[in-house]
Design a protein around this nucleic acid. Sequence first.
DNA 1: AGAGTTTGACCAGTC
DNA 2: GGACTGGTCAAACTC
Length: 147
Amino acid sequence: MSTHASTTSMDQSEEGLNREDEQEMERRSHRLKLPEDGYEWKKYGQKFIKNIGKFRSYFKCQRENCMAKKRAEWSSRSDGELGEIRIVYEGVHSHEQHLSSSSSASNSLGTATSSSNANQYNLLTQVLGGDHHHHHQSTSTPRHPHA
DNA sequence: AGAGTTTGACCAGTC
DNA sequence: GGACTGGTCAAACTC
Ligand SMILES: [Zn+2]
């Protein structure tokens, strides 16, 4: 038996998508898109804050000379329905934002830079356990200027 | 191939 | 001193 017959069975060398792969891909295709703010961010962490029952993602500006950070927070919904996403900016940018609203979608070559993959992140849960004490700290609650 | 993303583990601060 | 939380890093994975 054995005798690796040339391409064995589950060889995903180049073209061989298994159901699991497709499932994974499909799962991955469901990502949360954050509103573009004109800056490029790199996600470096995500955690679930059980205290508030919300997810929190951590982003950092991609500029080498920029240390601005961004924090995205949203409620956890098992229905797949996300509440409102609150974005908190920390630090200041030492550069002007380059990405802008209009003038995007322009590619001489069809490099498919489509804005489809602008800001897509996967939602997952991190288990946090233990709720005993309560802490009171000025939870900055930014209010909107106006509804 | 590379950049960007994902996820668990680690660290620090707090009580 | 231990326990818990929030924040960050790094390896692994994806595209
Ligand atoms: Zn910046």
